Amino acid sequence: MARRSSRRTTTLTGFDDAKACPCGLGQPYGECCGPAHRGRPPATAEALMRARYAAFALDDAAFVLRSWHPDTRPAGVEPDPGMRWTGLDVLSSSGGGLFDAEGVVEFRARYRDAGRPGEMYERSRFVRHDGQWVYWGPILTDGDLANV
């Protein structure tokens, strides 16, 4: 019987593959969002949403930008050293599957900013670009537009 290696691998950000993934599914990072961060495209819009959240939590700006549609992607993103992402709840998901061209994921992300708790709510639109899921942007409501 072959012996399993106890050697742990870490990401470029130094996150241990054996630790629970920040996205909240309860799986080891190396089996959850880690493969997406290393270049394997997520199969669904929700999986990409979770991988993007984990990338924000791990300060992986390169993945955040790479997974953003080129028509809506900013020139750059800068991690905020005072902000720590602390949890993700996916509230609903529609479309975004194997045979879909678009998907919507509604989520709530919790954080601590300079020690104070907060949360972010968004309904995000995902589309296929070159055969892979990418983040398009938030779905704005009339109330959101009134505040712009």
Rank of each mutant, 00 (worst) to 15 (best):
Y29L: 00
E31C: 07
C32W: 07
C32Y: 04
C33R: 07
P35W: 09
R38M: 08
G39P: 09
G39C: 03
R40V: 15
A43T: 06
A43C: 05
T44H: 10
T44F: 05
T44L: 03
E46D: 06
E46F: 07
E46S: 12
E46I: 10
R50W: 04
R52K: 10
A54Y: 02
A54V: 05
A54G: 09
A55V: 10
A55C: 07
F56M: 14
F56N: 14
L58S: 10
L58Y: 08
L58Q: 11
D59P: 05
A61E: 01
A61P: 02
V64N: 03
R66K: 09
S67T: 15
W68V: 15
H69S: 02
H69W: 05
P70S: 13
T72M: 08
R73S: 08
P74G: 10
P74K: 15
A75E: 10
A75N: 07
G76M: 06
E78P: 02
P81S: 12
P81G: 12
P81V: 11
P81D: 08
R84F: 03
W85K: 10
T86D: 13
T86A: 15
G87S: 11
G87N: 06
L88I: 05
L88T: 03
D89C: 02
D89Y: 02
L91Y: 02
S94Y: 06
G96S: 03
G96I: 03
G97N: 08
G97V: 03
L98E: 15
F99M: 11
F99L: 12
